[in-house]
Computed example of a mutant assay.
Amino acid sequence: MTPKAFVYTEVAISVPFDQAPWKQINEEIKKQPGFLNKTWLQGHANQSLGGMYSFDNLENARKFVIGYFPTEPRAFGVAHNTRVFDAEVVKSASTDIGSVHYGDAPSRKPGAFVYTELQLSRKFNDFPWQDRNAALKQVPGLQNKIWLSGVSTHSLGGFDAFDTLDQALDFAINAFPETAASLGSAFYTRVFDASVTEDASRDMYSPYYAT
């Protein structure tokens, strides 16, 4: 099923991924209304835990972040971060850059993921994503991208898969800040090591491992 909403989460905890109770968490998440898939995330350097989820509609995505998800970090006694994004408005832009969430098969496994979000409010249909995609297609190691448009906020961001962790770091540390500066915006970036979360993500039907 084509996603209608994306959810991003990150928990303020530091734990090696093989010590995280991901199998139990996976079984609970699979029971949540409208859940389609999840890609597990482990923060580079700080070993935070998080995820990028797909849902069948915005209502179920909201229910997830308001109802179920706070129980996970509460069990660890830590704070957390959640975001809900409209997956329909970004479909054409994401498909144009090979997003595996809209039917494109992954050509290879990702080595890393980068999450970005700009502190601005701009309706996605007013953003010249075609020009930005043309530039992104030249970025070394970029495999594919989900464009992100914040529900209610219209924040602008993305979730990008890279061949290697070094390429992801170069994009997040060097390239993306220049993009944010050109838009006069503060920003948020996170880099995640995809190599340690593959098994957990496959168990959650992540489209990045469909091969």
Rank of each mutant, 00 (worst) to 15 (best):
A5S: 09
F6V: 03
F6H: 04
T9F: 08
D18R: 10
Q19I: 12
Q19Y: 12
W22E: 05
W22P: 00
Q24L: 07
I25M: 11
I29N: 08
K30N: 12
P33V: 09
P33T: 06
L36K: 02
L36R: 00
L41G: 02
Q42D: 07
G43V: 07
Q47M: 14
G50A: 14
F55T: 05
D56L: 14
N57K: 09
N57D: 11
N57P: 03
N60T: 12
R62F: 15
K63P: 04
F64W: 05
I66E: 15
G67Y: 09
Y68E: 01
Y68K: 03
T71G: 12
P73Y: 13
A75F: 14
G77F: 13
H80R: 11
S99N: 09
V100D: 03
S107P: 04
R108N: 13
V114D: 01
Y115M: 09
L118K: 07
F127H: 04
W129Q: 03
Q130L: 11
A134S: 14
A134E: 09
L142Y: 05
L142G: 02
I146P: 01
W147E: 04
H154I: 07
F159W: 06
D170P: 02
F171K: 01
I173K: 15
P177L: 13
E178G: 07
G184K: 05
R190V: 00
S195K: 04
S195T: 07
E198R: 08
D199V: 15
S201M: 03
M204F: 06
Y205T: 06
P207Q: 00
T211G: 13
